[in-house]
């Protein structure tokens, strides 16, 4: 009796859940259908999606017309290189913070003292800048010096914090809205930021990072670095320090401790982090839309080209979209848990 009732209940829940799941998935499903229809049929999809003929021509046309594979290549290069570069920074950092944490600030100054120091440096910077008419166009060295004057006390403050505060500060850099950084980055990318064309007689007029991998890869790396460090840190934290100490007692040097003991235990965490970072950078769509248009343009830029009225081909849009999302969606399915952990900075596991 009880068993039958729960069977009925289970069936009901199953039905509801599948229905809602399908509603959520529907736009993707629909894109998948439209991708295999002719352009004309794509516009009457709701009535004819089962009856109209299926075709593969869209995929061929997308590739032929716009060199689709080039965009796949660009996306992959940016995602993979930025991830590897990010890991090169993040693995040592996460190791240091997880296993050699600093529990106290290395310089003991009160918050008020720091605020005064920062304020003083800002005021000096502003005063010097104003005294030359706020124009660094003619004097790049002065401009760089002023950036250093502005930045060094901030960097010093960060550097002397204990590990927990350093982590929070890293997180806070992720909160910098791209709108705030857009103008400086845009100008750094195409005209040196300080808007000068000559430096000590060297012509820098050709300086350009816009639409290049040299610009996009480090940028993407920096965008995701806080998440990567946090995620690795939470994984490293779960490895008992005693095991590394045991290796030391067993006569392992630093390199052996890292390669023979830590690395094998850290591999799953590093792999998850890598996966999440690839997903994030694959789907990034602020900087790619603003800073690329051809040579280093990834798929998100490519798809956005379909927004113009003359680009309105639904079947081809669907085919291109399907190809752009399929690989990352599959990766995503396998990394659900890591995703939760990475995007909540370890607050939910």
């Amino acid at each position: 009796m009880a068993r039958r009732e729960s069977l009925a209940k289970k069936s009901a829940w199953t039905l509801v859940a599948w229905a809602i799941g399908f509603v959520m998935f529907f736009p993707i499903f629909w894109t998948g259908i439209a991708a295999f229809k002719s352009e004309a049929d794509a516009y009457s999809l709701p009535r004819t999606w089962l009856t109209s003929p299926w075709t593969l021509e869209n995929f061929a046309i997308v590739q032929a017309r716009s060199n689709y594979l080039q965009y796949v290549f660009n996306t992959t290069v940016i995602a993979v290189l930025s991830t590897l570069l990010g890991l090169a920074f993040a693995i040592p950092a996460a190791w240091g913070m997880a296993f050699q944490p600093e529990t106290k600030p290395s310089v003991n100054l009160s918050g008020k003292a720091w605020a005064l120091i920062l304020l003083f440096f800002f005021a000096v910077t502003a005063a010097i800048a104003l005294s030359v008419g706020w124009r660094m166009t003619d004097n790049p060295l002065l401009g760089l010096a002023l950036i250093l004057l502005f930045g060094l006390p901030i960097a010093a403050w960060v550097w002397t914090r204990r590990t927990g505060d350093k982590l929070l500060w890293m997180l806070s850099t992720k909160m910098m809205p791209p709108a705030g950084a857009l103008i400086p980055i845009y100008l750094i990318f195409n005209r040196n930021g300080l808007v000068f064309r000559q430096w000590g007689g060297v012509d820098l007029g050709d300086w350009n990072l816009i639409d290049t991998f040299a610009g996009m890869v480090p940028l993407m790396m920096l965008l995701n670095l806080p998440i990567v460090i946090w995620m690795l840190y939470t994984y490293f934290k779960e490895i008992p320090f005693e095991i590394l100490e045991a290796a030391r007692m067993d006569g392992a040097g630093l390199w052996q401790e890292l390669s023979k003991v830590l690395a094998p235990m850290a591999v799953p965490g590093i792999a998850s982090t890598l996966l999440l970072n690839v997903i994030l950078s694959w789907n990034e769509a602020f900087w790619t839309l603003n800073l690329t248009n051809k040579n280093a343009a990834p798929l998100s830029f490519f798809i956005s080209e379909y927004s113009s009225p003359e680009g309105q081909f639904w079947a081809k849009l669907s085919a291109a979209s399907l190809m752009a999302i399929a690989p990352i969606m599959v990766l995503g399915w396998f990394s659900q848990r890591q995703l939760v952990r990475g995007l909540t900075f370890g607050a939910v596991k």
């Binding site: 959520m24 998935f25 736009p27 993707i28 629909w30 894109t31 997903i279 694959w282 789907n283 769509a285 839309l289 798929l299 998100s300 830029f301 798809i303 956005s304 379909y306 927004s307 849009l317 669907s318 979209s321 752009a324 999302i325 990352i328 969606m329 990766l331 995503g332 399915w333 659900q336 995703l339």
Partner: peptide, 14 residues
């Protein structure tokens, strides 16, 4: 969970 892995430009246009 699939919609989360769709790049913003794709979901906007679709």
């Amino acid at each position: 969970i699939s919609p989360f892995f769709i790049m913003p430009t794709v979901s906007a246009l679709v």
